[in-house]
Amino acid sequence: MGFKLLSKLLVYLTASIMAIASPLAFSVDSSGEYPTVSEIPVGEVRLYQIADGVWSHIATQSFDGAVYPSNGLIVRDGDELLLIDTAWGAKNTAALLAEIEKQIGLPVTRAVSTHFHDDRVGGVDVLRAAGVATYASPSTRRLAEVEGNEIPTHSLEGLSSSGDAVRFGPVELFYPGAAHSTDNLIVYVPSASVLYGGCAIYELSRTSAGNVADADLAEWPTSIERIQQHYPEAQFVIPGHGLPGGLDLLKHTTNVVKAHTNRSVVE
């Protein structure tokens, strides 16, 4: 069995187990497998329904001669939608809004960016022009300005110390501490036991640490421990890039980060 097929099978099995364990909360999309990078042309966006009122959005972007996937989250909030992270750029984010209108038909009224990198804030200006209120932590807003990236308009308070959590509509926002970046936030959907790890969490097929220019490698494993301790009931975990899975993604990420750190020390 090929690795790609095995990865998709694991996603399907995880979703099936969740649907059985929580039949009222989960209505997993039966329309197909989780979209992969090879299936999404740059400039297009796919939506994948995880649970009743919960979707991931998947886009792709060219970077350094390669094409990478990027995940975000959409959560229903009454007759409105909360968006977590842009679709990595203005063109993708405009396509995301169009796809949401086509498939869901509810307005996106608020959006949260989970850290300051372009795959999370690139497209904020498109959201703002569409009347979406954009939010991020003060740290993310400051770092985005320093980096020359787009800056969300509103500040999220109460997320300055490791372990801080605040309720934001249908989700809980959690600051686990520094990891992929010093400002990275985690998003949890309690009604569906869905954990969105953003770039602080890796997919299972990833074996290298990737972009760690703004990471705190020493603190990252401790931050992941905080996530595990705060959300032990999480059933569906979405990484910032690639295929979702279960809580095993947290341990896998820790292993990859520690291996990278150990290699760096040896070198």
Rank of each mutant, 00 (worst) to 15 (best):
T60D: 05
V67R: 11
V37G: 07
T182W: 14
V108K: 03
S191P: 05
E225C: 05
I104P: 00
K258D: 13
V257F: 06
A144G: 11
G197P: 10
I17N: 04
T140L: 03
T153R: 13
E147M: 07
R167K: 08
D64I: 14
E39W: 10
Y68K: 03
P35S: 14
R141Q: 08
D164C: 04
L243E: 09
D183N: 04
E225H: 15
P69W: 11
I100Q: 02
T140S: 11
I100E: 01
V67N: 11
A200I: 09
G148N: 11
E101N: 13
Y48T: 09
P35K: 08
Q228D: 07
L9G: 07
G32C: 14
A21C: 15
G177I: 01
Y196I: 02
D248T: 14
T254Q: 09
T86C: 06
I224W: 01
A133E: 10
V189F: 07
S205V: 11
G122W: 10
A51I: 14
R226S: 13
P244V: 06
S70Q: 04
A144D: 04
R141D: 02
N255G: 11
V11E: 04
L13G: 06
E150G: 13
S30E: 07
G123R: 03
A200S: 06
R76E: 11
G78Y: 10
A87H: 00
V212Q: 12
H115I: 00
I227W: 03
E101H: 15
I50N: 05
S208K: 10
V45M: 11
K4C: 06
L9I: 06
S191E: 08
P190D: 06
L195A: 01
V212P: 13
E33T: 11
N92L: 05
S181L: 01
I201K: 00
S7C: 06
K91Y: 14
K251H: 12
A218K: 15
V166A: 07
A98H: 08
E219I: 10
P244W: 05
E150C: 04
Y196K: 00
G122N: 15
A129P: 03
A59V: 12
E150V: 05
G198E: 02
F26K: 15
G89T: 14
G197W: 00
E267H: 15
T93L: 00
H252F: 04
V212D: 10
R120K: 05
G158Q: 14
R142T: 14
Y196R: 00
H154K: 10
V11H: 05
A213F: 15
S139K: 12
V108E: 02
H115A: 00
Y12Q: 09
I227D: 01
S162R: 13
R206S: 13
A90W: 13
T60W: 08
M18L: 05
S70V: 04
I186E: 01
I84D: 00
T253G: 01
S155C: 13
L97D: 00
A179K: 02
L185C: 02
G89E: 01
K8E: 07
D125A: 09
L249T: 03
H115M: 00
G105Y: 15
I227S: 04
A192L: 06
Y135S: 04
P35F: 09
A19C: 07
Q103V: 12
S205T: 05
I20L: 10
R141I: 13
G177R: 00
L173C: 02
W220Y: 15
G240D: 04
A209D: 07
G158N: 14
I224D: 01
T140E: 03
A178V: 11
A178D: 08
N262V: 07
A90M: 12
A87Y: 00
N149I: 15
P152Y: 01
E150D: 13
V37F: 08
L96D: 01
L195D: 00
G43F: 11
L243M: 05
K102V: 11
G89V: 02
E145H: 14
A66N: 14
L249S: 03
R142I: 14
K251M: 05
A19D: 15
Y68P: 01
T153W: 06
A90T: 08
A144Y: 04
L96T: 03
F168C: 03
S30L: 12
V166L: 10
E203C: 04
T109V: 13
V194P: 00
A51E: 12
S161N: 05
G240Y: 00
G32M: 06
E147P: 06
W88Y: 01
V194S: 02
N149M: 15
S137E: 04
V265I: 06
L156Y: 02
N92H: 05
R128H: 14
S38P: 12
A87G: 10
P221Q: 08
S181Q: 00
D119E: 01
E233W: 12
E145V: 10
S205Y: 15
F236D: 15
V108S: 04
Y175A: 04
V237E: 01
S30N: 11
I224N: 09
R206D: 10
P152W: 02
T254D: 07
S7W: 08
E44G: 12
A90S: 14
T60Q: 15
H57K: 00
I201S: 03
P232W: 06
E101M: 15
A259N: 15
A209E: 07
A111E: 14
G89L: 03
T261P: 15
S264A: 13
S113H: 15
V37D: 11
N71C: 02
K8A: 07
I58G: 03
G131W: 04
E80R: 12
V166Q: 15
S22W: 10
E145S: 08
K102Q: 08
N211E: 14
G246R: 07
E101I: 12
L9T: 06
I40C: 14
I186G: 02
Y34T: 14
L106Y: 05
L96R: 01
F26G: 08
R141A: 14
T14H: 07
A209Y: 12
P41K: 09
A200E: 02
I58E: 10
V257A: 08
Y135N: 03
L24H: 12
N71D: 02
V45C: 03
I58C: 09
P239I: 02
D248W: 09
G158D: 14
S193I: 04
E233N: 07
V187H: 00
I58K: 07
G158C: 04
P170K: 07
S208R: 11
H154S: 13
C199A: 00
V28Q: 13
A87C: 00
A136V: 03
R128Q: 09
E157C: 15
V124F: 04
A213W: 08
E225Y: 04
G242C: 03
T253A: 03
L217S: 12
R226G: 07
I201C: 02
T109S: 14
A234C: 05
H252I: 03
L249D: 00
A259V: 09
A130N: 15
P170F: 04
R142K: 15
F168T: 02
C199E: 00
V189W: 00
T207L: 09
D119A: 03
G197V: 07
T134F: 02
E172C: 03
T253N: 01
A59E: 11
T153M: 07
V121C: 06
H241G: 01
G105M: 08
M1W: 04
D119R: 01
S70R: 02
D52M: 09
T14R: 06
L81W: 00
F26N: 05
A95K: 08
Y68V: 12
Y231W: 13
N184S: 03
A21Q: 14
D125P: 03
V166D: 04
G198P: 00
D64K: 15
L81Q: 00
A192T: 08
Y48G: 10
H180M: 01
V146E: 09
V67P: 09
S56D: 13
R263G: 09
F116T: 03
V67E: 12
